[in-house]
Design a protein around this nucleic acid. Structure first.
Lengths: 374, 374
DNA sequence: TTGTAGGCGTTATCAG
DNA sequence: CTGATAACGCCTACAA
């Protein structure tokens, strides 16, 4: 009842030792569970510890041992379902290993990410999982590695950095999605993608060529655009600039507008591939706003198997990835490195799956304003 | 180029002091930004620090000062959108204060939660935001407070614990939702709720009374059931046991099944209130599985304004809360306490909003198998 | 088996 | 203003 007014300083090994009438070394051995201690001593000390409510100060322990048993995770935004689920996987693996995870949001801003990494390093975390904002500006990540703190990349691979990464084959996944549409007879297929306004992709057609080439760093959306172009190429269809629309990352309103504009064209694409979950949602609402019947007037393929894609009518055909597995794998890889594994960096590619649902169907003659060229 | 093979030990104040040819005390003053240092010394030390790439070891700093600049968050599951968004709010406020957040999932299991809290305390975090699993078993939280570590409750209030809490008025929110249905003329209104199988609510009718009373701790779902009963009571409608269905927390398949069973009754309720986002989804899919037209055959009110509720047709009428604000407020409260505020514990009640959308409409004569009793 | 002493990196205290 | 020194709580040599 009579608790001290000032919040009772946590008892230390020294306190327990004094209370038990033994040396700090002995108390330490019992409480830390190392070395040899006689049976009587052990119980005496343990009783004293229990009585005082002793619990180890892991900060002091970390200070001595150098092991903080903490890892860091840096992602764009934890409220994004992809990162939230990945974080869940990371936390699960961390717990299995007796570690905890510190979470930092980068908001997809390089400066914030750099800060986050620095803070984590200063906190002496033993490893970092990061979904990097930039694939070119990576000094901060390199520095971490040089300090002996392993880094695992999530959702992105950085060739110039000798680092494990966990992700998917974005180009192949997109290609599969678009090929699905092509096989259904669609020939005019639009694309929606989220891009960083600062480093938006450039579509270049070399002089004298009808071909279109994408310039830009290896962000997921860029690679997915490549997949789209590549799939069309397989059918000898040149992509048209007007059929590719971009919106800023994470901006659902812009995604809707871009999709709406894309679908307002005459003639209109008979199918659209949305390269990420935000544009998928924008595409879906835009199709409805235009009063288009799906898949009658328009076929839709989206990215990421979010709940809502099965709840709407018709359910949306999507490219599915597994963020929980991605998080787990990234963490597992990280712990291998923490434990000293020095194998060459590996690029782990997780499977994606095209889930065909009601939003895609054969091209209808009425919808196809322009017949296929072949 | 010639980087050491063994990952270069981080330079310490001592290293910098030696390199600059000054005492550790002076170097410490410059690098830690405390005390008085002459201008020449300052630049000399700073240059040496930059040259060596010095960065403070905050673990050692924490060890001395006792301030780890870390807080903990314990929630059921970060991959749940509610917690993910709340965590986002917590992280944002923490960053503003120069703190970081350690995340731990409790999976809604008491034992896991206890462990999490213990680990966090041992890590010397300075405060905890927790969405507690149990409102009765709170020894671990009390212990934290006794150690001088402030605790703020999220999404739940525990009367027996003298602790700040941030949440909503679950009973009032549910009542508003059900009253909306009553005003539309519905008289037979079903309820779906997620409950902990271990402490499932009991519906008791005192002998000789037609009244139904809910026993159970103050979990959100229980309070929402109270709101449902209270709303019906306002219209002199006795709740019927068969119209109340429960499914285990987080189990979407069970939620669907329970909803399906509820809608399979003859006569069927003309409206259903789902008390949380999982049962809302189950209710929506079950209605479709029965081929019911909404709101023609059945009106639906759900809980939580998730994305999908606006994407489906018709959009779902829901009770909306603001998890981002909840997280922010909880963290703000926590930092007040960390800074020493000793005002009496406050129970912060955030506003909810009934968003009326297409899934609710007036009761149709054909759907009402049984006329109202009055 | 038990105890003593020192140090991890930082900051605070005290002299100079 | 600067420097030597002790201390935070724990663990590990080493000595007894």
């Amino acid at each position: 009842m009579a608790s001290n007014s000032h919040p009772a300083r946590r008892p230390t090994v020294t306190d327990v030792a004094r209370a038990a009438g033994v040396s700090v070394a002995t108390a330490g051995r019992v409480l830390g569970g190392y070395g040899k201690v006689g049976e009587e001593m052990r119980v005496t000390v343990q009783e004293a510890a229990d009585r005082l409510g002793y619990s180890p100060n892991v900060v002091a322990r970390s200070m001595r041992s150098g092991n903080t048993h903490s890892i860091g995770f840096v992602g764009a935004d934890i409220s994004n379902p992809f990162f939230a689920t990945a974080m869940r996987g990371i936390c699960d693996v961390a717990r299995e290993e007796g570690y905890e995870a510190i979470l930092m949001n980068s908001d997809d801003r390089l400066e914030t990410e750099r800060n986050a990494v620095r803070v984590l390093l200063d906190k002496q975390i033993e490893g970092i999982v990061v979904a990097p904002t930039s694939v070119t500006d990576v000094e901060h990540l390199k520095r971490a590695q040089e300090q002996g703190v392993p880094v695992v990349l999530l959702d992105r691979h950085i060739p110039m950095l000798d680092t494990d990464s966990v992700g998917i084959d974005n180009e192949a996944a997109a290609r599969e999605a678009v090929e699905h549409l092509l096989e259904l007879g669609h020939r005019r297929i639009g694309l929606l993608a989220s891009v960083d306004p600062e480093e938006s992709p450039e579509l270049v057609s070399p002089p004298g060529s009808r071909k279109l080439i994408v310039h830009g760093v290896a962000r997921p959306s860029i690679e997915r655009i490549r997949g789209y172009i590549s799939a069309l190429g397989g059918y000898r269809i040149p992509p048209r600039r007007r059929d590719l629309r971009y919106s800023p990352i994470g901006d659902i309103a812009q995604a809707h507008q871009q999709a709406f504009a894309l679908l307002g064209q005459r003639p209109r694409p008979t199918a659209v591939f949305a390269a990420d979950n935000v544009t998928t949602q924008g595409l879906f609402t835009a199709a409805r706003a235009h009063g288009l019947s799906v898949p009658g007037d328009l076929s839709i393929v989206g990215f990421d198997d979010l709940d809502w894609t099965t709840l709407v009518e018709p359910a949306v055909t999507v490219v599915a990835q597994d963020p929980l597995a991605a998080g787990r794998q990234a963490a597992q890889r990280l712990f291998l490195r923490i434990k000293g594994d020095t194998d060459p960096a590996e690029q782990i590619v997780l499977a994606t799956r095209l889930i065909v649902r009601g939003s895609t169907g054969p091209v209808s003659p009425s919808a196809a304003g322009m017949p296929a060229t072949d």
